[in-house]
Design a protein around this nucleic acid. Structure first.
Lengths: 194, 194
DNA sequence: ACCTTCACATACCCAAGGTATGTGAACGCG
DNA sequence: CGCGTTCACATACCTTGGGTATGTGAAGGT
């Protein structure tokens, strides 16, 4: 509490957390930067000292949220041994994550518009899409799905799951999740080798 | 040029066209409303008289662009007789449309964030997704694909194609388009009845 | 003990969205 | 044709909010 580096980190984390709450609840545009700082008990100057701009704070929030999402999905996938089932478990975990308003609003809706699609793509690739590609590659090597160019399939699946996650946030019941997961498996069946 | 209703419509169309250009080129946030009006030769007051707000103009632009896209895709699909090939042709047309920066930036990137995802979803459904669902229903009735719940499949496919279209805008060569279309057909193959 | 660094606070600027009000030409009506 | 009304704009103004320049006092090194 007394050392400078501690204090700095504490303020930074508080701003990040408060920003994350507000960005998720109200959307990027409706959040006023000064209010975030005041809610934490510091002034705008402090927030600018840490993040440089409103978009800077948002970027940090997106990164944090993205990484958590990636970790969560990877954990769900790693909990299953069979390659194919592991893959399906990961997809399911991603779909379920869409119910989380922080992921929904921050990562899927606002981030592409605020950061620009190119930056968003880079961050998404580092946090999620990369894992997807690797998983698909693994399935190909294991002979579970047909070999071929991985990238376009990964992009299609990534988009499909992003969109589906947004829809599932509207109907957060297990039945909808199951139905969507089943439809997704139906599509993936096209790639499988019997 | 003299009657009032003519003049009104002319101004409205000019604002719409200029807005569309700028929103596509610079993104919603970077466009300044007053500049759009000035570029058309009227003042901000006129633009507010017509559209009520910056978001109002943007909404009108999105609607126009969405409808054009829907028409374009439907036309491509209708040009082919065989149900399955018609469906594939429609998907391909949609993917190719992603290369258009107006569609890309306005409809796919900015619209969800500016209008909110719910409103965006409604507009997208009216312009595109509805056609997709109907096409899938038709394929089911015709016995081309397996029967089942259409909605989740339509959502997955819609998201997949939206994302793929954004990627294809980065690599606007025919090879990438073909590769993506092939991957999409690979997924769709999971639904087909042999 | 002294000076430097740095995490903030304070005060200010200005771009841009939005609004309230004015105005003159087109339109309906007798 | 004269006259009041409507309405498509113009003008002037307000306000919010992101961003910046500068000050300050306490922590940290020497």
């Amino acid at each position: 509490m007394s050392t400078r580096v501690e204090q700095r980190e504490q303020t930074r984390r508080a701003l990040l957390a408060e920003g994350r709450r507000r960005f998720a609840a109200d959307g990027y545009h409706a959040v006023v930067f000064d209010d975030v700082a005041k809610a934490v008990g510091v002034t705008k100057g402090a927030a600018y000292h840490h993040f440089g701009s409103k978009a800077g704070l948002f970027t940090a929030v997106v990164r944090e949220t993205q990484e958590e999402l990636g970790t969560r999905v990877a954990a769900a996938a790693d909990a299953v041994a069979d390659p194919w089932d592991s893959f399906v478990a990961g997809c399911r975990a991603f779909l379920a994550a869409g119910a989380d308003p922080e992921i929904r609003r921050i990562v899927l809706v606002d981030a592409p518009a605020v950061l620009g699609w190119n930056e968003w793509r880079d961050m998404d690739d580092a946090a999620s899409a990369r894992h997807l590609r690797e998983a698909l590659c693994g399935l190909m090597s294991a002979g579970v799905i047909a070999s071929g160019p991985v990238t376009p399939i990964a992009r299609l699946l990534s988009g499909a799951m992003n969109e589906a996650a947004l829809w599932l946030a509207q109907e957060p019941d297990d039945a909808s999740l199951d139905e969507t997961a089943a439809a997704l498996e139906g599509l993936l069946a096209g790639l499988r080798i019997p």
